[in-house]
Computed example of a mutant assay.
Amino acid sequence: MLSYQHIYHTGNHADILKHMTLLSTLGKLSQKTKPFTVIDTHGGAGLYPLAASEIQRSGEFASGAQHLVDASAVLEHPLLKEYVAVLLRCLQHGELPGSPYLLNSALRENDQMHVCELHPQAFAELQNNIGGKGVNLYQEDSFVGLKRLCPPLIKRGLVLIDPPYEQTAEYSWVKDALCENFPKWPTAAYLLWYPLLSSKAGPKSGLSEQLCHSLDHSIEAKNIAQFELYMTDFDATAVGMFGSGMLCINLPYGCFEEVHTSLNEVVEILNSVSSQRFVVRAKWLQVPN
């Protein structure tokens, strides 16, 4: 469980999907003056040095979010412009943002933020990178922390769940955590990231699809939306994760259209410069009332 290091995948297509969905949700929460609570169950280090050998060696930022940065002058969608502005702000300091940075940047005077991270090195880096009023960091198992924190005193808010899915058991842990904690805090938005895995991933291939189907039938919410960003032409013997998705429970009004249309622009940019062909899929699993 402690072998996964997000730094290798910082700024890849999965980060683009996750961070733009998160930014859209935070934007809607911030439209009202009432305070909110945000919980990040798998925080990581919060910020990652661009010059790190892990980032340079993997090349995932270079083949992902770097292309959006290169197109910054011609971007059209406001959400995409906001995301790239965050990237540019961090790149000025030689860094790339993780989800705790985005959450921390959105905090206002009375908002609360809770981040769990179990890995000792990542937690030490998180403490160095993220802080301030209303910020609470825990070196704790993510699902133990979520159970302890739900429901928070401030009932407006969101939960970001972003496991590494190193073990097949994590899919069951995610379902159990949502089914246990959603009834305790049913007004929150829950943003669940999941990988789309080819046959190269062996027994984990198809488990994300099963998880989404199971949650759709296990949780009755105001709405459940699903976004997926993935490659259509790839060698399944060489590529394990060909895309990823976000399962969004109680997505705030307006987020679905905002995320969908901005991801369409992302796909246009990536497809114009990449040998891979990306597509985006967005749909309601439970339609808003």
Rank of each mutant, 00 (worst) to 15 (best):
G94I: 09
G94D: 12
E95G: 02
L96A: 12
L96V: 11
S99V: 11
S99K: 07
N104S: 14
S105L: 12
S105N: 14
L107A: 06
R108Y: 14
N110Y: 14
N110T: 03
V115E: 08
V115W: 02
C116V: 10
E117N: 09
Q121I: 14
A124N: 10
L126S: 05
L126R: 06
Q127S: 13
Q127L: 08
N128G: 15
N128V: 00
N129K: 02
I130Y: 09
G132A: 09
K133C: 10
V135E: 14
V135F: 05
V135C: 07
N136K: 12
L137Y: 12
Y138D: 10
Q139T: 02
E140P: 00
D141E: 15
S142R: 00
S142T: 05
S142Y: 04
V144E: 08
G145A: 14
K147E: 15
C150W: 02
P151D: 07
I154D: 01
R156C: 01
L158E: 01
L158D: 02
V159H: 08
V159N: 00
L160R: 06
D162S: 11
P163M: 09
P164M: 09
P164F: 01
Y165C: 06
E170D: 14
E170I: 04
Y171Q: 11
S172F: 12
S172L: 15
W173G: 07
D176C: 00
D176S: 10
C179D: 03
C179A: 06
C179F: 00
C179P: 00
E180K: 03
N181F: 01
F182D: 01
W185T: 01
W185N: 05
W185P: 07
P186S: 13
P186N: 13
T187D: 06
T187L: 11
T187H: 03
A188Q: 05
A189K: 04
A189Q: 10
L191K: 04
L192W: 04
W193H: 12
P195A: 09
P195I: 06
L197R: 13
S199A: 14
K200S: 12
G202W: 08
P203K: 14
K204L: 13
G206E: 12
G206L: 07
L207P: 00
E209M: 11
Q210G: 02
C212T: 09
L215K: 08
L215V: 10
H217W: 02
H217F: 04
S218C: 11
S218V: 02
S218A: 15
I219F: 05
E220L: 11
A221C: 11
A221D: 12
A225G: 15
A225N: 08
Q226N: 11
